[in-house]
Amino acid sequence: MRYFGPDILTVADELTEAYVEIFTAPPWEHRDPEATRAAFGERLRTDARRPGFRAILAISDDGKLGGFVRGWTTEAPFRTDRVYGKVTRRLGADRVNEFLVGAFEIDELGVRPNARGSGLGRRRLYAATATATPPRPAAGRGC
């Protein structure tokens, strides 16, 4: 297991290849591998600069990346792109600010097909969240 912050870009090529293999296979087989590669590479460069960014990669003894998890600290104001607007509509702005802003947010978890069923994804998820800072308590609430 290897931990990365903004230095994730030092292994961007390996991570991107794993991402493309994972996220152009079923049920995402309709995705174009080259477009997926380009979009992920751009997103990774942006995400690596987010406050609290970290990624945990599973690298086998032979150096092959088997899986990953990546995320960051959720900032205020809460985003509205991707699925964030739907989250705010469902939870309400007050709950979003109370429970999500300041918490560690898992963006993506991926496991290559040959490593699936081994618990690798669960171990990456646990490692990413085990040291995450919990969200701050809302004003007037005890811990």
Rank of each mutant, 00 (worst) to 15 (best):
M1D: 08
M1G: 11
M1L: 14
M1Y: 05
R2D: 14
F4C: 12
F4K: 03
P6L: 05
D7Y: 09
L9P: 08
V11F: 05
D13Y: 08
E14W: 00
E14K: 06
L15I: 03
E17M: 11
A18W: 00
V20T: 12
E21T: 11
I22W: 01
I22G: 01
F23D: 01
P26W: 05
P26F: 02
P27Y: 03
E29M: 13
H30M: 07
D32V: 06
E34I: 11
T36S: 10
R37L: 11
A38W: 11
A38Y: 13
F40L: 13
G41V: 06
G41Q: 09
L44I: 02
R45S: 15
R45F: 08
T46S: 14
T46E: 12
T46Y: 10
R49D: 12
G52T: 14
A55L: 02
L57Y: 00
I59Y: 01
S60T: 09
D62F: 04
L65A: 01
G66M: 04
G66N: 02
G67K: 00
G67A: 10
F68V: 01
F68I: 04
R70M: 13
G71Y: 06
G71I: 07
T74V: 05
E75V: 13
E75D: 13
A76W: 13
F78E: 04
R79F: 03
D81T: 14
R82F: 12
R82T: 10
G85Y: 15
V87G: 00
T88Q: 14
R89T: 09
G92R: 06
R95N: 09
R95P: 00
V96F: 08
N97G: 15
F99H: 13
F99T: 15
L100G: 01
V101E: 10
G102N: 02
A103M: 11
A103W: 04
A103V: 12
F104A: 06
F104M: 03
E105G: 04
I106M: 10
D107Y: 09
E108A: 05
L109A: 12
G110I: 05
G110A: 08
P113D: 06
N114A: 09
A115P: 01
A115M: 10
A115E: 06
R116W: 08
G117F: 04
S118A: 14
S118P: 06
G119R: 07
G119Q: 12
L120H: 00
G121C: 10
R124D: 04
R124W: 02
L125P: 03
L125K: 05
Y126F: 09
A128I: 00
T129D: 01
A130D: 05
A130F: 00
A130M: 03
T131E: 07
A132P: 11
P135D: 10
P135K: 09
P137E: 07
A138T: 15
A138E: 11
A139L: 15
G140N: 07
G140P: 08
R141P: 12
C143L: 08
